[in-house]
Amino acid sequence: MAGVVAAVMLAGCGPIDAESAGGGGDTASGDKGGASTGVNPLDNPKGTERGLAVIKSDKDRAAAVKLIEKVPTKGRGAKTGYDRDEFGYAWADNAEDIPFAHNGCDTRNDVLARDGEDLKYRSGSKCVLVEMTLHDPYTGRTIEWRKQDAAEVQIDHVMPLSYDWQMGASRWSKAKRVQIANDPLNLMPVDGRTNSSKGDSGPASWLPPSKGIRCSYAVRFAQVALKYDLPVTSPDKDAMLAQCA
């Protein structure tokens, strides 16, 4: 089945603007036990529920493997022509057929509100968050976030947009690219430094530092790939399977 990845970079996700700050989940623990920060991704196929919980049971791990096995593989295409603007302006509220769209709040604040605890909004605003607590699933850290230190928390595209481009999104309509860029299934508020080091890496070259959450991360990566009919590379699929085996 899966080949175990020889080396894994223990860093974070692709850089987003400094205002991509985020909210939290339920509980958090260190690297030994993994972070439990919300809902099992197998029980959250739309990404509308909070965070990313550890997958613990043998039954769920078997279900995770079965899901990941459905993801097709191919080599990465060229990055030629990729630009963030090809996926619409950041955090657009006008994507079609995804949760939270057209609710009057931008995608970033929607996702922060989804995952945040103890939310405080800007005076007179129902959207703009200025304070919250985040239980980061990738590191197990609990972060007391304030908007003046916005970059401390960023929004991760679990399946990075550049990766999407190279795996087939370059041939999509603009509307479909706007969808994947703003779909809560593909978005996770996390520690900013960790996020910034991920770039457009797939799971063969980057996994969350907290080992306990890696199977859940692999499941979420697979859920996005399957929803948008995107393949992953063979090494990435092997790495994903290895986390849940």
Rank of each mutant, 00 (worst) to 15 (best):
S201Q: 12
P209V: 08
A95L: 01
D60C: 04
R177L: 02
A242F: 06
A7I: 03
A62S: 14
K46I: 03
R171D: 03
F221Y: 14
V232N: 01
G3D: 12
L129S: 04
Q243G: 00
V219I: 11
N103S: 03
G25E: 02
K126P: 04
V158I: 13
A7W: 10
S201E: 06
G24M: 08
V232Q: 00
T194R: 08
K74Q: 07
A6Q: 13
L187V: 05
G14F: 09
K120Q: 14
K70I: 13
I213M: 01
I213L: 09
G212A: 14
V224D: 00
P15R: 15
G168Q: 05
P235K: 10
K59N: 12
N44D: 15
G192H: 07
R50N: 12
D26H: 08
T194V: 12
K237Y: 01
A6I: 12
V232H: 03
F100D: 11
G25P: 08
A239L: 09
S57H: 05
Y138H: 09
R141A: 15
R84Y: 03
M132T: 14
D183L: 02
P160D: 00
L187A: 00
R214C: 01
E69Q: 12
A239K: 13
G116V: 13
V39N: 03
S205V: 11
G88W: 11
L119W: 04
C105K: 08
S162A: 10
S197I: 04
K79T: 14
L52Q: 02
N182I: 03
V111R: 11
G34W: 00
A113I: 13
